[in-house]
C-alpha cells in the first residue's frame, strides 16, 4: 500500500493543485496550544511538518528561531514532541505528519530509540536538516525498515552527479530548498528559475514527490503551483508571534492564514 505521504500527494494531484505542507514548532507557544494549532490547520494542510525545537537551528531564520526558543523556554522536551505527535495521530489517523529537526537531538536520544518511537506514534516522515547525503545513508535505511519516510534535501548548489545519487537513494518525498538562505528569507530567485531547477530534479524520477520550501509565503506561493508540494513555515511562525503579541488566539489566526494560502 502507498504511504500516507504518497496518498496525500496523489490526492492533491487529483485536485490539480500542489500539496500544502505546513511547518509549526512543537510546544510553540505551549504544548497544548501547539497541538490545537496542528489539529486545526490540518483541516487545510495536506501534510503537517512538526519541528522538534533546537536552540542552534543552523538552517532557520528569525521567525522559526523565535518559535523554537519560545518552545524550549516553555520546557518542551523530545518526549513532549512525541506525545504531541501521538495525540495528533489519534484524532487524525490519515493525515501524514513529518518530524523535522537537527541531528544532535536524535543522536543524544539514541538513533534506534528515536526511530522506534517515531514508528510507535505513527510518524510518517523525518527531515533531519543537518544530516546530509551520504552521511545519512545508514540512518535512512533504518527509517525505511520502520516504514518512516526519510526525506532528502537538495539545494540550488547540489551538483548534477550528487543530485542523481540523492534522488536514487530517496524515499517518497524530496525537499528542494528554493534558494541559498535560511528559512523565511525573501525569495531572491525568480519563481521561473526555481521551477526550471525543480523540473530538472523532477525529470530524474517522476515517481518522487518534490516539494519546494524556503521563502514560500501567501504572495510567492501562487507562482509555484506547478510543484508537487509547497512548504510554508516561517509565515505561520510569524503569525503565532504576532498573535501572542496582540493577545489574540494563535489557533484562529494561524488557521485563517493557512486557509488563505490554500486558496
Amino acid at each position: 500500500m502507498a504511504s500516507l505521504l504518497s496518498q496525500a500527494f496523489q490526492n492533491a494531484k487529483s485536485e490539480n493543485r500542489p500539496a500544502l505542507l505546513t511547518y509549526t514548532v512543537a510546544g510553540d507557544n505551549t504544548k497544548k496550544k501547539s497541538l490545537e494549532i496542528l489539529k486545526s490547520i490540518s483541516n487545510y494542510a495536506d501534510i503537517c511538518e512538526l519541528g522538534f525545537p533546537h536552540n542552534t537551528p543552523i538552517a532557520d531564520g528569525g521567525q522559526i528561531q523565535t518559535s523554537a526558543y519560545r518552545a524550549i523556554k516553555n520546557g518542551i522536551k523530545i518526549n513532549d514532541v512525541f506525545s504531541i505527535a501521538k495525540d495528533f495521530k489519534k484524532s487524525k489517523k490519515t493525515k501524514p505528519i513529518i518530524l523535522m529537526g537537527y541531528y544532535n537531538m536524535i543522536f543524544q536520544y539514541n538513533e534506534n530509540k528515536f526511530l522506534d518511537k517515531c514508528k510507535n506514534v505513527k510518524v510518517d516522515g523525518l527531515i533531519v536538516v543537518d544530516l546530509p547525503y551520504p552521511e545519512n545513508k545508514k540512518f535512512a535505511a533504518k527509517c525505511k525498515k520502520r516504514e518512516v519516510n526519510f526525506i532528502q534535501l537538495v539545494s540550488p548548489t547540489t551538483s548534477p552527479v550528487r543530485l542523481k545519487k540523492i534522488i536514487k537513494d530517496s524515499h517518497d518525498m524530496v525537499y528542494y530548498i528554493s534558494m541559498l538562505s535560511t528559512t523565511g528569507g525573501k525569495l531572491k530567485v525568480s519563481p521561473k528559475k526555481i521551477l526550471e531547477r525543480y523540473s530538472k530534479i523532477k525529470n530524474l524520477n517522476k515517481s518522487k514527490n518534490i516539494v519546494i520550501g524556503f521563502g514560500i509565503t501567501e504572495k510567492t506561493i501562487k507562482s509555484l503551483k506547478k510543484a508537487d508540494g509547497l512548504v510554508v513555515g516561517s509565515a505561520i511562525c510569524k503569525e503565532i508571534s504576532s498573535s501572542i503579541k496582540k493577545r489574540q488566539n494563535p489557533v484562529t489566526n494561524v488557521t485563517n492564514i493557512v486557509k488563505k494560502i490554500k486558496k
Binding site: N55, Y103, M105, Y109
Partner: peptide, 19 residues
C-alpha cells in the same frame, strides 16, 4: 560527543542535545 555545525566533537550541551 555531539554534532554541531557539521562535525562530531566533544560538545558543551545538555542531555537533550541542546547546545
Amino acid at each position: 560527543i555531539g554534532i554541531l555545525h557539521g562535525a562530531a566533537s566533544y560538545l558543551c550541551q545538555n542531555n537533550e542535545g541542546q547546545i
